[in-house]
């Protein structure tokens, strides 16, 4: 990079974004999210009505959940209607939902949750950090592996040994 094209101090240079795997129009996305929340509200209200509601003077266990479920349902329907009627460039702007990096990180997060107790904290965290470093950084495999082992080892020593946090050890 030449001196002239090098960014000056005080600058923030955004990294190139990978292409989006899932991108939606803001209006459509808002409608889907509000509809999902309304469904959740309806399910909560339905579940709350199975509990004893009591009376207005003496509310029972189902009273507050029913109110909360109804609140969620009604407010989500209002959001849905607002999104449905929205027009203009803001409503049509694309919203990047998942790109390759975010998608892979999400998969790694759920794999981490699934393996954490079975494989134990040191191994799972080591593998997770290695996978994240390979995904996000330009580091070579052996450098990333060494760094992952060092980070996972330090975390294990600090939390499990020093702070005596009850972490799973796995099969070993």
């Amino acid at each position: 990079m030449s001196e002239a094209s090098r960014p000056a101090d005080g600058a923030a240079i955004p990294a190139a974004q990978p292409p989006a795997l899932l991108s939606v129009q803001r209006r459509g996305g808002e409608v889907v999210v509000a509809a999902a929340l309304a469904c959740a509200g309806a399910a909560m209200l339905r579940g709350a009505l199975d509990l004893e509601f009591g009376t207005l003077a003496l509310p029972a266990a189902g009273f507050v959940p029913a109110l909360a479920g109804a609140g969620l349902l009604v407010s989500s329907l209002v959001s849905l209607a607002t999104a449905w009627r929205s027009v203009g460039p803001a409503a049509e702007a694309p919203v990047r939902l998942v790109d390759r990096t975010t998608g892979c990180v999400l998969l790694l997060l759920f794999a981490l949750a699934a393996a954490f107790e079975a494989l134990g904290a040191p191994i799972t965290l080591g593998l997770f950090i290695l996978a994240m470093l390979r995904l996000l950084s330009p580091l070579r495999l052996h450098v990333a592996a060494a760094l992952a082992a060092a980070i996972a080892g330090t975390l294990w020593l600090f939390f499990a040994r020093l702070l005596e946090a009850p972490l799973p050890t796995g099969p070993f």
Partner: peptide, 18 residues
């Protein structure tokens, strides 16, 4: 950030589990 993100997530998992 590629070095920070996995460390932060690992601390989150350790914290929540403990």
């Amino acid at each position: 950030y590629f070095a920070l993100a996995p460390v932060i997530i690992s601390i989150c998992v350790i914290g929540v589990y403990s």
